[in-house]
Design a protein around this nucleic acid. Structure first.
Lengths: 245, 245
DNA sequence: CGATTATTTGAAATCGCTCAAGTTGGGTGG
DNA sequence: CCACCCAACTTGAGCGATTTCAAATAATCG
């Protein structure tokens, strides 16, 4: 059983929609199943995980801080009526499980198998070195979240999808991008997320995401093989469509 | 002259709109005027500022990290065509000026006069204690940004405005809220932002924000005196409209 | 190869945006 | 103190991008 089943069926995004009133409240206090006892004296405990596993859920006691080594994790929040927003995509090196309150304010679900170093929250807060190490990484994540706020608040559907594709292209589109002429202009990227997950990340519906991909295909900018596999024929053209250049 | 003049006139939010093609590119590399030499040996330098002043701009060299003591600051990002998104509202205790790259990825404009402690970025990175101190605060800001992503990605206009009002009500709506019956159900809040700034924060247009306020007024939930002054007649009703409860 | 799920596509509805006026409010100068 | 001005805000009408609903098609997995 896939973990994001809650959102599997199409849920109307529009809160004025009558379907919302009929929905069950989102599961808030479900305890994570992937619980492994942590020895506080350790400088972090290694944890392996598979695909589509919850590491913790919105409402769980926020006792651990994770440092992703390998794989991919998404952090999402649910509204009581079932609307979901993926608030952060976590890649190798990123830190997650940070919370300002004693419980997690979002859920963490793995997108791809991998492993993480798990730190006891109390230990992190007592160890300046560890704290510093983890915090350094948060800075980059901070900027990524700012960028994502722009996407969610101000970009059109096509721009959002183009931005998402660019996120999958390493070293391009951001600071230090060689620009047109610099580097290869073609790449094969694996999205690693379903259309529904992408939609929940981009603040769109699954249909709109699908239409955007189709539009890019129609324009000859990308070629889509196995749904998760996108061949970008012209990186710079995608980059221009992001609205950021 | 107000600093956010760029956005003063109504700019179409829809990127398909012909007006976008006519617009000048956003000012990227304008140097901040509020420059004060910093002595690196100091453990932070106190800086006073007035209302509607830029502390730094998107594209400036990211040499300083700020810790707000008093007042209010907004961080915003501009897209090249002039669309603006306020990515964070900074209150007393919050930290800003963090950047993963050598230049600021957003602009910082004051909303209310106050003062901040300015740290040299290099100093912060060399001083574990200082770094730790500043990072601790970032955790709370991290959660706020996650919450804001939900707002931008999944909430209706009315829910966004209701959420914004609740943000102005201290101690309610979040973790540890006494709920209905606990505490006063009425409060007088000062928004401290123009409709345009609120719109850019909520990912809406100024007209939509205005209509949402009118709707709340029509329903008798709030009373609006001097535009920036909102009397919330029923905190819990506003809270329910946020979509979070 | 068939069952099941995920994705795509089409048509209609809707929310928020755009455009265009009108209104309010705060400040200024007579 | 009041008339005027200007910027900020509000309101209305129409439009358009995205959502919703519904159905068809494609991909995946035994």
């Amino acid at each position: 059983m896939k973990a994001q089943m809650i959102q599997q069926t199409t849920i109307p995004q529009n809160p004025a929609h009558p379907a919302f009133r009929r929905r069950e409240p989102a599961p808030r206090a479900i305890r994570s199943t992937a619980f492994i006892p942590l020895r506080p004296e350790e400088e972090g405990h290694r944890q392996r995980f598979g695909e589509h596993v919850h590491l913790f859920r919105q409402g769980d006691d926020a006792t651990r801080i994770y440092e992703l080594i390998d794989g991919e994790v998404m952090l999402y929040k649910l509204l009581p009526d079932g609307r979901r927003q993926v608030v952060e995509l976590i890649g190798p090196g990123d830190v997650f499980g940070i919370s300002a309150i004693p419980i997690y304010e979002c859920s963490a679900e793995t997108l791809r198998a991998g492993h993480a170093v798990v730190h006891d929250r109390a230990v992190v807060e007592r160890s300046p070195d560890l704290f510093r190490l983890l915090s350094a990484r948060l800075q980059a994540q901070f900027c990524a979240m700012h960028e994502h706020a722009v996407l969610l608040g101000r970009k059109s559907a096509l721009e959002r999808v183009a931005s998402f594709i660019m996120k999958c292209v390493p070293g391009r589109g951001g600071y230090g991008c060689p620009g047109p002429g610099g580097g290869d202009n073609t790449i094969n990227v694996r999205l690693g997320m379903t259309r529904q997950e992408i939609a929940d990340y981009l603040g769109l519906t699954i249909e709109t995401v699908s239409r955007a991909f189709s539009e890019l295909r129609r324009r000859g900018i990308v070629t889509i093989d196995r749904q998760e596999q996108v061949l970008v024929n012209n990186i710079c053209r995608v980059c221009k469509l992001t609205g950021a250049h």
